[in-house]
Write a protein that binds this DNA or RNA. Sequence first.
DNA 1: AACCAGGCGCATG
DNA 2: CATGCGCATGGT
Length: 303
Amino acid sequence: MINSNSILVPIPALFSFQECVWFLNRNYDDCLHEIREGDVYKALEVNGQMLLIRISENGAFLEIELLEGDIDEEGKANLVAYVREWFDMDNPIQPFYDLLQSDGRLAYMTESYKGLRLIGISNLFEAICWSIIGQQINLSFAYKVKRALVEKFGNKITRGGQSYYVFPEPGLLAEVSKEELKAIQFSSQKADYMIGIARAFASGTLSKELIVSLPDFEARKKALTVHKGIGVWTANYALMKSLREPQGIPYGDIGLLNALANHNIIQDRKELGKIDALFSQYAGWESYLVFYLWRSLTVRDSA
DNA sequence: AACCAGGCGCATG
DNA sequence: CATGCGCATGGT
């Protein structure tokens, strides 16, 4: 049923909502969205107002429904832009598929993961905090820590007895004490890193706009790594997920290395030359290649 | 019960 | 520039 609170977005070529949803719902407990019956539920905060949306597939369209909250025409346009960006719908990925197709080791991905898009994290602050949380710990635990943080400090909207959260604002986390973070299982170092990043965002020393405005990839990377807690891996992850930089390769990422080993592209983790050689073949699509390699780490549930 | 996990900063050669 | 180490703590 289409009503005034529903928006239809045409689905582009090489886009599979199911593949994207599968990724969002793989075997981890992400607190910033909910999947039910194949539909995506997500809370958003727009101009201080909490919204709840549901995204589903409707024929040749994605349907975005506003379940809670109120927005005007401009708000609707922003909502559509948000979803298109989140699922990378405006990026024609055929060239990437052509590259995969000509690569014997990876060609199967064009069928197995057909239409999977690089799911983004539009909020740069969130992307950086998430990668700090995820540094050097297993993902199951990382998602637990993120949930504790979000449920303690994030705004929420409730519907049908269920709460949906948005990531906390930097201004709030800038005032949090180290002890509060350690209580939710941050290490002492990560607590310092995150408070520092929150303060940088709260004061305007660091922002997505500022990073975007820099002239090139290296400058953007450098502007990120000057902050404590943002190393090469985190900077690349943030550039890949939030700024959608094709060159954002999280070098050293253990999952990436494992995936490369699984595909017999490297034998051990020190073969940096082979890794560079592979990525040089995917110029312009490096981050997509990383994303697809990460995808390959989780086996699809046959059920 | 070890060993590992979607690293980082800092100190040393 | 490369290597080594401590950090912290849950998963497997």
